[in-house]
Write a protein that binds this DNA or RNA. Structure first.
Length: 875
DNA sequence: GCGGACTGCTTACCT
DNA sequence: ACAGGTAAGCAGTCCGCG
C-alpha cells in the first residue's frame, strides 16, 4: 500500500537533513539564532510521548517552513524512575526488587522536602521501562510498598517525567543540533525587559527571575500550523441510530477534509440505490468531489491525507470518527501498521501527527467559561459553531443514509469546515490559546486538549518542583499534616466556608459605581504567602501568624511555591497583558495576540484557588483553600467597614465586589488607596451603572451602563431553560429599561412594559405560541436510572421519550411542555398545543416580570390588570 | 384523607 | 473530574386536624 511507504521512515530521517538556513517567521526576528546551522531550523515542540517499541521518549516537532512533523527519539538515555525512602542497602535486601527484570539501577539523590522544610536523602530506583515502575501488579512501585517502603513520584506518566527532567516547554521553538535537541533562546528586546523590570521594582528576586523566563513564553509567536479538519458519515440501516465504532459494521459513506490552506475534499462512496442529487447546492465551489466504488480505497486515501497534515482536527473524533475509521479499516483487512491511528485509553492518536478532538477541548469548563466567556451553553458542534462563528450545521430533513450523494457531501463538508473554523476564527484564537496553554502547563498538545484545568495546574506545579529539586509530595503526605478544616460551610455537603454575599438594598439606584478586587483569591494567595507548604508550616515560630476566623497560621520564613507562581501569573496578566491587549500603539495583530495571552492567563488564575479545595487534585490542601476564602471575606468586610466610615452607601456586594450608590469621586479614590495601603491588594472601578435595579434576591440584578448596555445577572429571563417566548418577552422588557435615563423616564417605561405583558398574555391565552416557544429545555446530567431520589419533570419527559425508542444519555437536553394531565409534562415531540397548561405558564410569566418589576415598586397584577386567580376563574 | 410546612433534589446561575 | 453561595421549582414527607 502507498500509505505504508508514507509511514514512519519518512519522518525518522531526522538529523540527516541538509544544511539549510533557519526559518524567519512572522516576528521570528525575536528568536536568537545561535549555534551552528547544521540540522533543521526552528521547530515547535508539539508533543512528547513514549515509544514502547524503542523504549524511548518520542518527540513530535513541527517545522513551520516545510509544514511537516519530525519525530525525534530521545538519545540521552533518560529512563523512568521512582523515589523511595529506603537506602540502597535496604533495597538490596529485597530480592523481588533486585531480581526484577525491569530494574535498571539504584542511586542516591538529595531532594528538598517542602512539607518538612528540610533536605532528604532518597533512593532513585531507575527502571528500563515505564511499566516496571507502575501499572502492573508486579511493578517496582507495588513491591516496594508491600515491603513497607514509602515511594514518591511513581504515578507520574513517563512522558511528563521526561518533560520535567529535561525542562522542555511544549509549544516553544527548538532545533536539532548535531542530533541534539536544543531550546531556541528568544532574545527579548531591551525596551520590553526594562519596562517589565520597572513594573516589578521592589519585588523579590526569585519572582523577577521567574518573570524573565515566563515573559518569553508570551512573546514568542506561534506558527499557523498546517491542519485539516475531518468529518465522516457512516451508513445506518436504522435512522437515528448512531453506528457503534468498535464494531464498525456499516460502511463509511462520506469523508470530508477541509484544510487551512484553502483546500477542501469530499470523498464519497457510490451506492447503487442512492441517487446523486440535482445539483451541488451547498458545496463550496473550490472543493473537489471524489467518487469511490471501493470503500477500502476511499479509506486508504483518507489515511494518506492524515500523513499530509501535522494536525488533524475533529469534533468528537476520539469517540467516533477516528475510532470508527480505525476499526472499519481493520475490518476491511488493513494491518495495524497501515493505519495511522492508534487508540490509547479514551483517545484516538496519530502515529506521526497530532489529533485534536475539539469536542473535548470545547467541553472543558474552564475553556467554555473563562476563555470564551460562556458564549456557548451546549457543547454540540452546532451550538458552539453558531455561537462563535455565527454559522451552524446544515439541517437535514431525512436521515443521513437517505440523503442524495450531493446533499450528504454538503452536510459532511460543512461539518468539517466549521470544525476547522473553530480553530481559525478571530485570528486563530483557539490555536493561540492551545499553544499558550501548552507553554504554561508544559503539556503535550494531545494531553492538553483532552484534560481539564486541574491536570494543567498539576503539571505546571510538578514542573516547577522538579526545576528546583523539590520532592513532589504524595497527596497523603499533605493530608496527614494538613487535613484540618476549621470553618463550616453554609451549603450542606460542602467542606468549608466560602465567600460572603451582601444583602442587596431593593430599589432602583441611580449612578452606581462597582468596585472590585482584581482577581481577589490569587491576590490573597500572593499577598498572604499561601501555599500547601506554608499554611500550617512546621515552624513553631510561625504559629502566631494567624489567618483571621481560622486557627491556621502561615509561614514567615519561606516564600510559598504556589504563592510565588499564582502571584506571578496574576501580576503578569494585570500589569502587562491586559494593558497590552488594549494598547492603541500596537497593531491589531499584536493586540489580538496579547488578548489571547491575557485570556490564557485568566484561565489558570481563575482555577488556581479552586484546585486546592478539590480532593481530586494531588496537591489538595483544605486549610490553604479555607484560608484563601477566609482572607477574601476579611478583605471585603474590612473594605465595607471603611466605606461606611467614609459615609458611602454600599447597596450590594458579592465575594469581591462592592456596589456603591452615587459616591463622591474622592471617596472612591480614598477607598482604593486604603485597600492598597492596608490590605495590599488592588481595588479598582469595574463598571459604572446609569442605574441598577435590585430586589431582595442576591445574585439577581439588572443594570444599565452609561452607554445603555444592559447587564443582567441571574434573572430567570436569562436562564437557558426558560421557554423561548418568555425570553423574548424578557428581552423586550429589558430593551425598554435600557432606554430609561432619568427617574421620570420610568413612567413611560412602565406603560411600554404593560403593553408587552398584555401582548404576551393574550398570545398565551389565544395559543399563538408554538410548542417550541413554550418548551423548557433542561439538561439530563446523569443516566436516567440514577434518578432514584425523585423524578424531576425533565426526567419524566425523558422517560416518555425512551418509551418511543429514543436513547437518552447524560448531556442530552430534553425539551418539554407543561400539560394538564396526570404527568404534568410531555416532551415537545409528543405534545399537542391544546393540552398545554396555561396556568403554569402564566405563573412563570409572573415570576419573570416580578423579578424586574419588584425593584420598580410594581407588581405583575399592576401591569397586567388581572391576577392569576382572576384568570383562573374566568377560564 | 388532605393541605400546608418543611426538607431534599435538581438545575442553572454568580463570584 | 477547580471552589462555595444563591434562586427557583418540584418531589416527597411529615404533621395536624374533631
Amino acid at each position: 500500500m502507498r500509505s505504508k511507504k508514507l509511514t514512519l521512515d519518512r519522518f525518522l530521517s531526522f538529523g540527516e537533513e541538509d544544511v539549510r538556513d533557519h526559518v524567519r517567521q512572522r516576528k521570528a526576528e525575536t528568536l536568537h539564532e545561535s549555534g551552528t546551522s547544521h540540522g533543521i531550523g526552528i521547530c515547535y515542540l508539539l508533543s512528547v510521548t513514549y515509544d514502547g517499541r524503542k523504549g524511548r521518549a518520542l518527540l513530535k516537532l513541527y517545522d513551520p517552513e516545510r509544514e511537516v512533523i519530525y519525530l525525534w527519539h530521545d538519545n540521552t538515555g533518560h529512563k523512568p524512575y521512582l523515589l523511595t525512602n529506603l537506602d540502597i542497602n535496604e533495597i538490596n535486601r529485597i530480592t523481588e526488587v533486585i531480581a526484577h527484570e525491569g530494574l535498571d539501577h539504584l542511586e542516591t539523590v538529595t531532594k528538598y522536602d517542602l512539607l518538612h522544610d528540610r533536605e532528604v536523602k532518597l533512593t532513585k530506583v531507575v527502571a528500563k521501562d515505564p511499566l516496571s515502575i507502575g501499572g502492573t501488579s508486579n511493578s517496582l512501585r507495588d513491591i516496594l510498598k508491600r515491603n513497607k517502603a514509602k515511594v514518591w513520584e511513581a504515578k507520574i506518566k513517563y512522558h511528563n517525567c521526561y518533560i520535567y527532567d529535561r525542562q522542555l516547554i511544549p509549544g516553544m521553538p527548538y532545533k536539532i543540533d548535531n542530533g541534539e535537541l536544543k531550546r531556541l533562546e528568544a532574545k527579548l528586546s531591551e525596551e520590553l525587559l526594562n519596562n517589565v523590570m520597572e513594573l516589578w521594582k521592589g519585588e523579590p528576586k526569585e519572582e523577577i527571575e521567574l518573570l524573565r523566563e515566563w515573559v518569553e513564553l508570551f512573546e514568542v509567536p506561534v506558527p499557523d500550523v498546517k491542519r485539516a479538519a475531518v468529518d465522516i458519515e457512516v451508513y445506518s440501516p436504522v435512522p437515528d441510530r448512531i453506528p457503534n465504532p468498535s464494531e464498525a459494521e456499516e460502511p463509511v459513506i462520506c469523508v470530508a477534509i477541509a484544510d487551512n490552506r484553502g483546500r477542501g475534499r469530499i470523498l464519497i462512496l457510490r451506492r447503487n440505490d442512492v441517487r446523486l442529487g440535482e445539483d451541488k447546492g451547498m458545496i463550496p465551489e473550490n472543493v473537489s468531489i471524489e467518487f469511490y466504488d471501493d470503500e477500502r480505497k476511499l479509506i486508504g486515501e483518507v489515511f494518506k491525507a492524515f500523513y499530509e497534515y501535522p494536525i488533524i482536527l475533529t469534533f468528537n473524533g476520539d469517540n467516533f470518527d477516528l475510532n470508527y475509521l480505525l476499526h472499519r479499516a481493520l475490518r476491511l483487512g488493513f494491518t495495524r501498521d497501515e493505519i495511522p491511528i492508534v487508540f490509547s485509553q479514551d483517545a484516538a492518536l496519530l502515529r506521526t501527527g497530532v489529533h485534536i478532538d475539539l469536542y473535548k477541548f470545547f467541553s472543558n469548563r474552564s475553556i467554555q467559561v473563562y476563555a470564551f466567556s460562556n458564549k456557548y451553553r451546549e457543547t454540540t458542534l452546532d451550538a458552539i459553531a453558531s455561537a462563535l462563528l455565527g454559522e451552524g450545521k446544515i439541517q437535514h430533513e431525512k436521515p443521513i443514509s437517505e440523503l442524495s450523494l450531493y446533499d450528504l457531501a454538503a452536510y459532511c463538508y460543512r461539518d468539517a469546515e466549521i470544525t476547522l473554523k473553530l480553530t481559525t476564527f478571530n485570528e486563530g484564537l483557539t490555536m493561540k490559546l492551545i499553544f499558550l496553554f501548552m507553554r504554561i502547563s508544559k503539556m503535550s498538545m494531545e494531553d492538553l486538549t483532552r484534560q481539564g484545568i486541574s491536570s494543567w495546574i498539576k503539571n505546571l506545579f510538578y514542573f516547577e518542583h522538579r526545576k528546583r529539586g523539590f520532592l513532589i509530595p504524595e497527596p497523603s503526605d499533605i493530608r496527614d499534616m494538613k487535613g484540618v478544616i476549621a470553618t463550616k460551610a453554609i451549603i450542606k455537603g460542602k467542606k468549608y466556608m466560602g465567600a460572603i454575599v451582601i444583602k442587596p438594598k431593593p430599589g432602583v439606584h441611580f449612578k452606581v459605581v462597582v468596585l472590585d478586587f482584581a482577581s481577589l483569591y490569587p491576590s490573597v494567595i500572593k499577598r498572604w504567602n499561601l501555599s500547601y507548604e506554608t499554611v500550617r508550616c512546621p515552624h513553631e515560630e510561625c504559629k502566631g501568624n494567624l489567618i483571621p476566623e481560622t486557627p491556621h497560621w502561615v509561614c514567615t520564613k519561606r516564600k510559598g511555591l504556589t504563592s510565588l507562581i499564582v502571584g506571578l501569573l496574576r501580576d503578569m496578566r494585570v500589569k502587562i497583558y491586559k494593558r497590552k491587549a488594549k494598547d492603541k500603539n500596537l497593531d491589531k495583530t499584536e493586540r489580538s495576540w496579547y488578548d489571547a495571552v491575557q485570556r490564557a492567563l485568566k484561565v489558570f488564575i481563575n482555577a488556581s484557588y479552586g484546585v486546592f479545595g478539590s480532593d481530586k487534585f494531588p496537591l489538595y490542601c483544605p486549610p490553604m483553600a479555607e484560608s484563601t476564602t477566609a482572607l477574601g471575606r476579611y478583605a471585603i468586610k474590612s473594605t465595607i467597614a471603611e466605606a461606611e466610615k467614609l459615609g458611602l452607601d454600599v447597596i450590594y456586594g458579592d465575594t469581591d465586589s462592592l456596589f456603591i450608590k452615587n459616591p463622591p469621586e474622592e471617596s472612591i479614590n480614598h477607598l482604593i488607596e486604603w485597600a492598597e495601603r492596608k490590605l495590599g491588594i488592588d481595588l479598582e472601578v469595574d463598571k459604572v451603572y446609569r442605574y441598577v435595579t435590585l430586589s431582595d434576591r442576591k445574585k439577581n440584578y439588572l443594570g444599565v451602563m452609561i452607554d445603555g448596555t444592559i447587564d443582567i445577572k441571574g434573572l430567570m429571563g436569562k436562564k437557558r431553560n426558560t421557554p423561548e417566548f418568555l425570553k423574548q418577552v424578557f428581552m423586550e422588557m429589558t430593551k425598554v429599561l435600557s432606554e430609561v435615563k432619568t427617574p421620570e423616564d420610568f413612567e413611560r417605561a412602565r406603560k411600554e412594559i404593560q403593553r408587552i405583558a398584555h401582548d404576551s398574555y393574550s398570545k398565551l391565552k389565544n395559543r399563538s405560541y408554538s410548542l417550541e416557544d413554550l418548551a423548557f429545555k433542561v439538561m439530563i446530567s446523569k443516566p436516567l436510572s440514577h434518578y432514584t431520589k425523585n423524578t424531576p419533570q425533565h426526567v419524566k419527559a425523558a422517560l416518555q421519550l425512551e418509551k418511543y425508542g429514543r436513547k437518552i444519555v447524560p448531556g442530552d437536553t430534553i425539551a418539554f411542555v407543561k400539560v394538564r394531565s396526570r404527568m404534568g409534562v410531555k416532551p415537545v415531540q409528543l405534545a399537542r398545543i391544546d393540552e398545554i397548561d396555561e396556568e403554569k405558564y402564566l405563573a412563570h410569566m409572573e415570576t419573570i416580570f416580578e423579578q424586574v418589576l419588584s425593584a420598580l415598586n410594581l407588581t405583575f397584577s399592576d401591569i397586567i390588570g388581572v391576577t392569576r386567580m382572576d384568570s383562573f376563574f374566568s377560564s
